[in-house]
Design a protein around this nucleic acid. Structure first.
Length: 260
DNA sequence: CGTGTTTGACCTGCGC
DNA sequence: GCGCAGGTCAAACACG
């Protein structure tokens, strides 16, 4: 477990972004990248979660992806994950339209023109269920086996018409209790979720929620990270997402570590 | 009947 | 060019 390989220097603009739980910010970086800010109060805003409780909590491991795809040897669970900063202009490009038009556009792509991806963000969560509830409705459109992994990878698409967001879910074969969720694209609509009771309050009184405490991926010894432990799919997903947004601003530097 | 899942086939990018 | 792996399509199917 201690044999961690730092890959940051090997993969520029890419990284498994993990964050310390310190400082206080109110950014919604992650959700902003999912284009939530233009639709009035999102389900996160409705919840009005105070930032204070989060600086005391455990944090998920967050990947930030770009259009580039790199291979991280010996870890198929994250092998195609790569990272690019918010300033990566390529990440902001939208190549395709919607629905049938999108399909036509794909087929009409010039062979020598590199296909660009939407910005992608991934995070790891300790969970018994693969598909975590996140406030949006998803339709599964594919499942594939992953090389060197006994666990299949599932592909989901937002069911809202004209919304092109995709989601990829797979289990880490290094730690089967960990689910790697990858979002691609930006929602073009508000979350259809119904507001829930303030999760921060619920968190504080729900010891089961914090019982995870994994260390499969970790920051340097002085700032170990751990994971949320979702015992069910319905456990406060909005909290996790908001935390990702908070932590993204707290720890902008990219540190990639690979579990051995 | 509407919605979502399953799954084999197909497409695409990339490395050799 | 070829093979591999990731990603997507779409028909068939399941379910409420």
């Amino acid at each position: 477990m201690e044999d961690l390989i730092q890959l940051a220097s090997n993969y520029s603009l890419s990284g498994l972004m993990d964050y310390s739980a310190e400082g206080e910010k109110s950014s919604l970086g992650f959700m902003e990248l999912l284009n939530m800010q233009d639709f009035g109060p999102s389900f996160l805003d409705i919840l009005q979660v105070p930032s204070e409780p989060f600086v005391q909590t455990q944090t998920p491991t967050v990947f930030q992806e770009s259009s580039e795809v790199v291979n991280i040897p010996n870890d198929s669970s994250i092998s195609s994950e790569s990272c690019g900063g918010p300033n990566d202009e390529q990440n902001k490009e939208v190549l395709y339209g919607e629905g049938e038009e999108e399909q036509k556009a794909k087929k009409q792509l010039k062979p020598n023109k590199k296909r660009l991806r939407e910005p992608r963000f991934a995070f790891m969560t300790r969970s018994e269920v693969d598909h975590l509830e996140d406030g949006y409705r998803w339709r599964k459109y594919g499942q594939k086996t992953v090389k060197n992994s006994p666990f299949p990878r599932s592909y989901y698409r937002c069911t809202t018409a004209s919304c092109n967001v995709k989601k990829r879910v797979e289990r880490s074969y290094h730690d089967p209790s960990t689910v790697v969720t990858t979002y691609e694209g930006q929602h073009t609509h508000p979350s259809p979720v119904i507001a829930r009771p303030n999760p921060a309050v619920a968190l504080a009184s729900d010891p089961a929620f914090f019982s995870g405490g994994a260390t499969a991926f970790s920051r340097p010894a002085q700032t170990p990270i751990s994971y949320y432990n979702y015992s069910t799919a319905a456990n406060y997903p909005s909290t996790l997402l908001r935390d990702i947004g908070l932590l993204q601003d707290i720890m902008p530097s990219s540190i990639i570590r690979k579990e051995e």
